[in-house]
Amino acid sequence: MSDSPVMNSKGSPDRCRTVVVSGVPDVLPSSRMSDKLTIHFQSARSHGGDVEEVEYPTHLKGVAFVTFESWRDADKVVKCNQVLKDREFQEEYPLTVYMYTPEVALYAFADVDLSLYPDLSTLIASLRSTHGSVRIQPDLTKAGFISAEGPFSALRELRKDLLSRAPNRDISDKASSLFKASSPDKARQSAVDGTDIVKLWLDTHTYKYFQMVQRKDWDRCVSRYDVIAQAVSTGEVTEVELHGDKSVLSAAQTELQKLVAERQGTLRTQQIDCSSSDLATRTRLLQACERVQSIYKDVCYAPTDSYIEVIGPSVSSHLFCGMVKIVTDGARI
């Protein structure tokens, strides 16, 4: 599996062969869903072509990366409405497809109250047409609400668009709260009195990796500039606030951004499924992870209710998962 989407020899973004596919349903095991995605994007109905690789699952829930052999096929599929359907599916699943950019690492989610906007269905259709890299779905549990997900910068543009469309102040106030769920608590913002604040956003898995594997590098940067770093994770995005003297904040922010950029492009997240495991099997898995981590020191793991997240460089994380299976099955290392 390649570590990054492939560009043309000139690196031109309009020649990118990889697309982001959001809205992938969690109805099949990941390996079979990868096959379904391959079949779909090689079919005539998708207007695609030969698929070189499907990366699924990824560190983003319901999101896959599909790389075509030709950039022309990638270019065509993003221009068409994509609906995933198969005999095994009980329903059809609309997909949101757009070209890959590095901004996908800063992925965000938001619930948006549009109840005061007139003609919601027409508004949603217009927003989908204008903001192709944002997946917009009506919330079936709350009338007048939509859920939106996509690169953070794309959601920011969506917010601006909603503000510009607001016909009165009441609606404008509601639209301005688009990122309320992703914003830090106001009390926390003022936790350090007498200091200035700058912010940076990074993928939550990348933040976890720095805290668990490269904490010394992170702390060294923070302590060098005598700033305080406070973080809040909201889904796939972690917002980090740096509090400190104005004269050093910009330099600290730049150095942390550089540190993150050097690492996050190499990281991949694997999942070890334990959703159907009993307590004894789950315990063996966690014990195996602890043992294997002594070999792959550049990998970290974090258990959830249904799987174990494994975060690290592409090759190391893949080998880590394979070794965990071997150890769990009874082999010695």
Rank of each mutant, 00 (worst) to 15 (best):
S2N: 13
D3S: 14
S4P: 03
S4L: 15
V6R: 08
S9L: 15
K10F: 10
S12Y: 12
S12I: 12
D14I: 08
R17I: 09
V19E: 01
G23M: 09
D26A: 15
P29C: 15
M33N: 04
D35R: 08
L37R: 01
L37K: 05
G48F: 05
G48N: 07
D50M: 06
E52V: 01
P57V: 07
T58M: 11
K61M: 09
F65R: 02
V66D: 03
W71L: 06
D73Y: 12
D73G: 10
A74S: 11
D75T: 10
V78A: 10
V83L: 13
L84S: 01
D86P: 07
E88R: 11
F89A: 05
P94V: 11
V97Q: 02
A108Y: 02
A108K: 01
F109N: 12
A110T: 13
D113Y: 06
S115A: 11
L116T: 15
L116A: 10
Y117E: 05
L120W: 09
A125Y: 04
S126P: 01
R128C: 15
S129Y: 05
T130H: 06
P138C: 07
T141K: 13
G144R: 01
F145N: 02
I146T: 09
A148V: 08
F152W: 13
S153P: 03
L155R: 02
E157V: 09
L158N: 00
L158P: 00
S164V: 00
R165C: 00
N168R: 11
K174W: 04
S176G: 12
K180L: 14
S182T: 11
S183M: 12
D185F: 04
R188I: 13
I197D: 03
L200Y: 05
L202Q: 04
T206R: 00
K208P: 00
K208A: 07
K208Q: 08
M212V: 00
V213M: 02
D217Q: 13
D219W: 01
R220W: 07
R220S: 12
S223H: 08
D226A: 14
I228C: 03
A229M: 10
V232I: 07
E236P: 07
V237S: 04
E239W: 08
V240H: 04
S247E: 15
A251W: 08
A252Y: 04
A252G: 13
E255W: 10
L256G: 01
Q257G: 13
K258M: 11
V260K: 00
R263P: 00
Q270H: 06
Q271S: 12
Q271D: 06
C274N: 11
S275E: 13
S275W: 08
D278I: 09
L279Q: 15
A280Y: 11
T281H: 03
T283L: 04
L286T: 07
A288P: 04
E290A: 10
E290G: 03
V292I: 12
Q293C: 01
I295F: 07
Y296N: 05
Y296W: 08
A302F: 10
A302P: 00
P303R: 07
T304N: 10
Y307N: 07
I308T: 14
I308C: 14
E309I: 09
V310G: 04
V310M: 06
I311E: 00
P313Q: 03
V315H: 13
S317L: 04
C321E: 02
I326V: 10
D329W: 01
